[in-house]
């Protein structure tokens, strides 16, 4: 029983991290129809920025978090402006290739600037142990889970109740009509990149609090990809929940069926789910009515 519980708890924690990354994937996919394969690298970059804000500039933890989030949004918007917008109107395949190139470039720049070694991330509270009933977790782990819940709820409210959020869904639904309604679609794309980087920054901070800053953290991007697919790729809120599901399934598979299965359990799960629900758990299905 204890073994099961601990597997589930650590699955929820790592799944929350997947969820944040997957939300970033979904944000860009939903708004622009593009899978941003540099999502993990954007997360790594923002984590290093958070590191430098604390270690090199001497900011306190809270101030560093705020500064990192702001920088992340700016970085997201700049990436779109510089690398993605010039490709507007090109085939999707070429645009996706650009994001893969972007991943390589960011990775090299980060290693050039900060080095390839893992660094300990300064986190004042991360090691504190918090007890919830019979479960004991690190404060950093609690931070990750709470952050995901807050982001998940916030994104749901955003898409449901704000005009900008509704406009984003409308544009994803039918872009040609969105233009006729006076939506500045280009600006909306750039905001989507900004918001996606915002999620990436939370993911980066979460990773660093639990582990350390290291270039290899960008691999989390691919690990989290099944969560996006499971969520339906276009559902930001759904991706947050799907992340937790993948995290738990991976951990249970690793714990009971053998370590080798842990890595691929997520992928097996999405294959099974997609056979039953081609639009993922939370994705939009086409409306067939003329």
């Amino acid at each position: 029983m204890d073994y099961l519980l601990s597997l589930v708890v650590s699955g929820v924690v790592i799944g929350s991290l997947y969820g944040m990354i997957a939300m970033g994937f979904a944000m860009i996919y939903r708004a622009t129809g593009l899978v941003n394969f540099a999502q993990g690298e954007v997360m790594m970059l923002t984590a290093y920025i958070a590191y430098s804000f604390q270690v090199d500039l001497g900011l306190g933890f809270a101030a560093a978090v705020v500064a990192t989030l702001v920088s992340a949004v700016v970085i997201g918007i700049l990436l779109e402006r510089i690398f993605i917008r010039p490709m507007l109107g090109e085939p999707v395949f070429s645009r996706v290739l650009v994001t893969i190139g972007l991943a390589v470039v960011i990775r090299s720049l980060v290693i050039m600037a900060w080095g390839a070694e893992a660094q300990p991330f300064p986190a004042p509270f991360a090691g504190n142990v918090v007890r919830i009933g019979s479960i004991a977790v690190y404060a950093s782990q609690l931070f990750v889970v709470v952050t995901l819940v807050v982001l998940g709820v916030a994104s749901w409210l955003f898409f449901k109740f704000t005009r900008f959020g509704i406009a984003m869904r409308a544009t994803a639904n039918r872009e040609s009509t969105a233009l006729l309604m006076g939506i500045n679609v280009v600006r909306l794309y750039s905001m989507a990149w900004g918001m996606s980087a915002f999620f990436a920054a939370f993911a980066g901070l979460s990773f660093c609090l639990m582990f350390s800053v290291e270039p290899d953290m960008s691999h989390m991007g691919l690990r989290a990809f099944p969560a996006s697919i499971l969520g339906g790729l276009d559902s930001v809120t759904g991706s947050s929940m799907a992340g937790v599901i993948i995290g738990v399934v991976e951990n249970l598979a690793g714990g009971y069926l053998g370590r080798g299965l842990k890595e691929i359990a997520g992928f097996i799960l999405i294959v099974v789910v997609l056979m039953v629900r081609p639009y993922g758990l939370f994705g939009q299905r086409e409306i067939e009515r003329v």
């Binding site: 005009r163 009509t177 309604m181 409306i287």
Partner: peptide, 17 residues
């Protein structure tokens, strides 16, 4: 050309964007 995945009211809200 409605936003067919959105509700009626959401369609109208987008119209007032």
């Amino acid at each position: 050309q409605l936003f067919d995945q959105l509700t009626v009211e959401e369609n109208l809200i987008v119209g007032g964007y």
